[in-house]
Simulated scan of single mutants.
Amino acid sequence: MNSRSDKLIPAAIILFSVIPVLGGVLRLTELGGGAEITPDNARFFASPVPVVLHAVTVSVYSLLGAFQFAPGLRRRRPAWHRGAGRVLILCGLIGALSGLWMTAFYPKPADVGALLTGIRLVFGTAWAVFLVLGFLAIRRRDVPAHRAWMVRAFAIGLGAGTQAVLLSAWIAATGPLGQLSKAVLMLASWVINLVVAEWILRRPVRVPQGAHR
């Protein structure tokens, strides 16, 4: 059972992360390759450091974090789990803080209004706070609280994957997004991820005898 979970769960998360990770790669290629500056990308060329930090750290967070959901790997390699967790907390905090900076200070595209800006600020802040709470919990050896906060943080960090699916489906079905529709869909994406996270946390967990806690 664990052998299947060790493969299927990380694979599903990585598949779900492909679109936002590729988006980050394309953005970095655009910045590094001297692409034409347009109204849509001018803010990134004017201040590239936040978007570069965000693209790199969120990609690492999504891909490396997928393997933290492999139960057998966590038990067999506890040192790896702890080391990867430190990297994830650092990448997550940089990803959250760089995202908050871009939300607050980058010029807003036409389809981003005050509602979406507020939503991004709330969830970016929650992402950072959940990571800090997860870190503090494991420092006091509260493993259940650590797990809960880290799963919630990962749900927010993986929001871009859900947003890519929902926004693409909306555009295919109805056409371009407006400020309100984009804000509602992005909010729905984060809410969906957090609902799934809470479902995962509330599932009965069978712990084999002799398993590491």
Results as ranks from 00 to 15, higher is better:
Leu73Ile: 01
Leu73Phe: 00
Arg74His: 02
Arg74Leu: 09
Arg75Lys: 09
Arg76Met: 12
Arg77Gln: 11
Pro78Lys: 00
Ala79Ile: 13
Trp80Gln: 09
Trp80Met: 02
Trp80Gly: 03
Trp80Ser: 02
Trp80Asn: 14
His81Thr: 08
His81Asp: 11
His81Phe: 09
His81Arg: 11
Arg82Ala: 08
Arg82Val: 04
Ala84Leu: 03
Ala84Asp: 00
Ala84Tyr: 00
Ala84Met: 04
Gly85Phe: 02
Gly85Tyr: 05
Val87Met: 13
Leu88Ile: 14
Ile89Cys: 10
Ile89Gly: 03
Leu90Glu: 14
Cys91Ala: 15
Gly92Glu: 15
Leu93Ala: 05
Ile94Glu: 09
Ile94Met: 01
Leu97Cys: 14
Gly99Ala: 14
Leu100Tyr: 11
Trp101Tyr: 15
Met102Asn: 12
Thr103Glu: 06
Ala104Phe: 04
Ala104Pro: 02
Phe105Pro: 11
Pro107Met: 04
Lys108Trp: 13
Lys108Asp: 14
Ala110Ile: 10
Asp111Ile: 06
Ala114Arg: 10
Ala114Gly: 05
Leu115Cys: 01
Leu116Met: 08
Leu116Ala: 05
Ile119Cys: 07
Val122His: 07
Val122Glu: 10
Trp127Pro: 13
Ala128Arg: 04
Val129Lys: 13
Phe130Pro: 11
Leu131Pro: 13
Val132Asn: 03
Val132Tyr: 09
Val132Ile: 13
Val132His: 00
Val132Ala: 13
Val132Ser: 08
Gly134Leu: 07
Gly134Phe: 10
Phe135Leu: 14
Phe135Arg: 10
Leu136Thr: 13
Ala137Val: 06
Ala137Ser: 13
Ala137Cys: 09
Ile138Trp: 08
Ile138Lys: 06
Arg139Asn: 09
Arg141Val: 02
Arg141Gln: 07
Arg141Thr: 04
Asp142Met: 06
Asp142Phe: 03
Asp142Ile: 08
Pro144Glu: 00
Pro144Lys: 06
Pro144Gly: 05
Ala145Arg: 11
Ala145Asn: 09
His146Met: 12
His146Ala: 12
His146Tyr: 10
His146Gly: 13
Arg147Ser: 07
Ala148Met: 04
Met150Tyr: 14
Met150Ala: 14
Val151Phe: 03
Arg152Glu: 15
Arg152Asp: 10
Phe154Val: 02
Phe154His: 07
Ile156Gly: 03
Gly157Pro: 00
Leu158Gly: 11
Leu158Arg: 08
Gly159Trp: 06
Ala160Arg: 01
Ala160Pro: 01
Ala160Leu: 06
Thr162Asn: 01
Thr162Asp: 05
Thr162Arg: 07
Ala164Pro: 00
Ala164Ser: 12
Ala164Leu: 01
Ala164Glu: 02
Ala164Gly: 08
Val165Phe: 00
Leu166Pro: 07
Leu167Ala: 12
Ser168Leu: 04
Ala169Glu: 03
Ala169His: 03
Trp170Asn: 02
Trp170Ala: 03
Ile171Pro: 01
Ala172Cys: 07
Ala172Lys: 06
Ala173Val: 01
Thr174Gly: 08
Thr174Asn: 04
Gly175Glu: 00
Pro176Ala: 14
Leu177Asn: 05
Gln179Ala: 01
Ser181Leu: 08
Ser181His: 04
Lys182Pro: 00
Lys182Met: 01
Ala183Asp: 05
Ala183His: 00
Leu185Ala: 14
Leu185Gln: 09
Leu185His: 11
Met186Tyr: 10
Ala188Asn: 07
Ser189Thr: 04
Ser189Lys: 02
